[in-house]
Design a protein around this nucleic acid. Sequence first.
RNA 1: GGCGGCGUAGCCAAGUGGUAAGGCAGAGCUCUGCAAAAGCUUUAUUCAUCAGUUCGAUUCUGAUCGCCGCCU
Length: 310
Amino acid sequence: MIKNRSIYAIVGPTASGKTEIGVELALRLGNGEIINCDSVQIYQQIQIATAKPSEEEKKGVPHHLIDYVSPEIDYTAAKWAEDAANKIVEIESRGNVPILVGGTGFYLRALREPFFDGPKADKELRKRLTKTIEKKGAEHLHKILSRIDPKSAAKLFPKDYVRTMRAIEVYFQTGKPMSELQPKRLDPPEFAGRIKIFALNPPRDILYKQINTRAEKHFRNGLVEEVRKLREHGLPDESNALGAHGYRRVCEYLRGERTLESAIEQTKQDVRNYSKRQISWFRHKEEVIWLDGFGNEPATQQQLREYLDQ
RNA sequence: GGCGGCGUAGCCAAGUGGUAAGGCAGAGCUCUGCAAAAGCUUUAUUCAUCAGUUCGAUUCUGAUCGCCGCCU
């Protein structure tokens, strides 16, 4: 019987009201538990600019994989997929319904369509390769890759150093080109096919305004102070956590590289650009069910209800 | 009022007597262990306006309008 049970995912651009509609869904089901699917909300200690739900917003609904990793750790999509899979099994074992909520499409994908069985990230190697980029440029890395794994190199733009680095990393650790390993994807988990994905699609112009307003609020609420303290406690600027929206720009401000005003404006810009990429990510996935509007609007929640009743 | 400078896409900005660089924004997209990351594509039939010179003007000339600076 578990076989027929649904698992839900609420995705969509940042600031579209995923939290609200996710909680609403959990309450409606009566036994929903939320699993965070956001690559930044997993971190502890970074709070103000992460849009994590407050206790009040949670309305008593259990939330998982939120606030559970130290900001000094560089967490990855593969790790999240593993953790989320375990959570799903755990929640279902107590007879409840898992609801994945978050905007990181890559994470959700890692869960539903697992990566190939590749090596973990090699921090030291990445550090060295990063230095190479600084000295000789991203294109140089791409040239190295085209010697050891021409197939992968051909698929990547020379400037795309993040993926180039991973391909090099895979080769150095396994001795095999990534292009050879990649087609051997791991089998999707049993529950993959039971995940129903709903994506929020609010009007773009209003979303952008919302994003701007929210960024200003974060700064007003003491974002600069929060970052200052984290840095004083030794959290490096290069950490994933301090690379999050807002944090990244505040670090630049604290390093004297930009004014506070420009940190605020750039943050708004960053988040607006990001929200657009999120929409791009989900737009052509045919398994996604689109809900027009913001998640906190009754009309949007009504659309969701209609799907549930079917 | 006089003199000088400027007026190129939503913004910043280069440029030439021969058919408008670039950046940002916007739009579209990619994504196989950093993904709130990284990368890709696209965007002015037109250079304030009008008239003139010219085979041809955004570029030269004149006038008009607007902005900025200095002087009185």
